[in-house]
Design a binder for these strands. Sequence first.
RNA 1: GCGUCGGUGGCGGAGCGGUCAAUCGCAACAGACUGUAAAUCUGUCGUCUUCGGGCUACGUAGGUUCGAAUCCUACCCGGCGCA
Length: 406
Amino acid sequence: MKFSITKRLKGTLGRVGRIETPHGAIETPAFIAVGTKATVKALTPEMVRELGAQATLENTYHLYLQPGDEIVRENGGVAKFMHWDGPTFTDSGGFQVFSLGAAFGKGVSKVATGDVAREEDGRAHKKQKEDHGALAKIDEEGVTFKSHIDGKTHRFTPERSMEIQHNLGADITFAFDECTSPVDPIEYQKEALDRTHRWAKRSLEHHQALGISSATGKQQALYGVVQGGKYRELREESAKTLGAMDFDGYGIGGSFTKEDIGTAVAWVNALLPEDRPRHLLGIGEPIDMFLGCENGVDTFDCVAPTRMGRNGGVYTKDGRLNLFNAKFIRDLGPIEDGCACYTCKNYTRSYVAHLFRSEEMLAGTLASIHNLHFIISLVDKIRELMSEGGYFEFKEAFLSRYYATK
RNA sequence: GCGUCGGUGGCGGAGCGGUCAAUCGCAACAGACUGUAAAUCUGUCGUCUUCGGGCUACGUAGGUUCGAAUCCUACCCGGCGCA
């Protein structure tokens, strides 16, 4: 992998650049589509390409459990397996340590808002009662967890995650980390951070020992993952510690409070080596794209566009809409006026609302196309303006319209 | 005509003397969703409300009872069976 910076946004940490991987280049900043189980849900790779995605991000935990990383390797690696002809990333499975461990049954989102500690997500709570507790337990060596599919016990260590990711064969991989809960106390955040740093070192050493991907025969890049929650001293310590290691790039892992995303990213990126790309893990609301880009993030990934899309939520320049609302039943306009996506060029809100109400699969497909196109082209626009000027004017106009009271 | 079973909130369908404005589905209305245990989940869902409660309700009309969606009588309507 090669990374080059072509332009900087004056007075900020922001930069415009290019990541070259064995399977193609990524112009940055860029939004990466999430395809956890080797598919961007509801979309074919051709659709994903057409709506503007430059790369996709798959998941180690999910593909290890199903179909198994050996099978993906036999298929020539995850990109070939899923018929995606561009660059790919794989997350390490570290996030699942959080979502199946600390966050299990507590309704704690990675982006905390308000009284998360006391709120209980009904769905997770119900599942917890069925399954009698968290599925993951952490120790110094790694994580023991139960499959959410069949309950069987498995174990991940940094070394194991690297082996699996080498079998999956993505161009860019991540070190095995622990994503803490936003409600964990600072003492635990510190303990987890130190462990994540030891895991980072072990990930890097094992990655180097493994050499080229057994699936593709290509050299893979490895990103270390900065943690530290909302605490500045921990974030900075993490950036310095990992920055001193020989990673190809860096992931910035959550957990933040919503207000702190921009500041936490700035603390970290001020200290990370400038010549290596940074990926902000799992962040994807429109406002976050601005905060990330001007604070030196090069790539993002997030499930929000596709998950929300499947649930009837769509982004527009005038804010988010819920296509299940009665007011759209007879709305003959496109989801978003002036949008160039396939969905908006060909269908009315009325039609897509009908598909959602009648539970037709195409609903999720059309909404996912629009949402991914929306967020990808937003980041594309940001990249263009960071390079050619007009970024701040655009940001102000966009956000004031997006958040205008309707 | 006789017999029999049944008529419950927008729909389906529980309840069969009190704790019933009435379990539960569906539909409807709104909300949540940020490295995907997610085509998932949550709330509201007779009516009025100063959110304490009030009012009207279980085909219709009477009756029994302290008390009825639940028991009795008549009638109306529907399914089935027999003529």
